[in-house]
């Protein structure tokens, strides 16, 4: 464990700006439309950790389970418990999302459980955010944005895929019947915010705080 630098990066108390802070979503939420086909909410400032390891090694999956209480998800799926979710990103790569501020403690816990294995845990909390889309037309907006087939027969609840999104990329997570999450990069968030406003204009867009 001493071979890597594990650093608490989030301050205990300091002003924070999520990737979409400039959009003034809270302000828009107050102005809120009552009926809209698409409802948008930023699930901001959560702890995001990228975990790498050997899925075929029972010591790895066992270690992850003992540290998180979650089974290592298989390809294109997402498992969740409370506010914690673990998602498959690639055959040796997972994304763990935890409540804000817990990422440092959980990284330590993971590293302890996986001690001696060739793994990697990287805090990427500042680099991405989650935009939740819900409402009856959320799927229509996705169809305008990604080449991936978002029909429920192909994309049931609990599935999560990395794909293209407009001219950027995104991880798309289907979390409830009419609810989807987009995991987007901080630097692209303004572009995607503009895109979503435009693509949902015909259905009406409401912002939820």
């Amino acid at each position: 464990m001493s071979n890597v630098n594990v650093y608490k990066q989030r301050p205990d108390a300091a002003r924070a700006e999520s990737p979409l802070f400039h959009a003034g979503l809270d302000e828009l939420a107050r102005k809120g439309k009552s009926s809209a086909g698409v409802i948008l909410r930023e699930k901001k400032l959560l702890g995001h950790l990228v975990i790498r390891g050997d899925a075929k090694d029972p010591a790895f999956s066992g270690g992850v389970h003992s540290a998180l209480g979650l089974e290592l998800p298989v390809a294109l799926t997402l498992v969740a418990k409370g506010d914690t979710s673990l998602q498959w990103l690639g055959p040796d790569e997972w994304l763990l999302i935890v409540p804000s501020g817990q990422e440092f403690e959980i990284e330590q816990r993971l590293r302890k459980a996986l001690d001696g294995q060739h793994i990697s845990v990287v805090n990427v909390s500042g680099g991405q955010t989650i935009v939740e889309l819900s409402g009856t037309n959320a799927r229509d907006v996705l169809m305008k944005s990604t080449t991936y087939d978002v029909h429920p027969s192909n994309f049931p609840v609990g599935k999560a895929v990395g794909s293209t999104f407009a001219k950027a990329g995104a991880v798309i997570r289907h979390t409830g019947e009419d609810t989807w999450e987009l995991l987007i990069r901080r630097s692209f968030s303004d572009y995607i915010w503009l895109w979503l406003q435009d693509a949902s204009a015909e259905y009406g867009l409401a912002v939820k705080a």
Binding site: R10, A14, R15, E17, N123, G126, G127
Partner: peptide
């Protein structure tokens, strides 16, 4: 919390301050 690198692309005494982006503007 920051990682500060003492490196220079100007030839002057320089420090590159890296912080989690959520806190950078402050």
């Amino acid at each position: 919390p920051a990682r500060v690198f003492r490196i220079s692309f100007t030839g002057e005494l320089s420090y590159e301050v890296n912080v989690q982006a959520d806190y950078a503007l402050g």
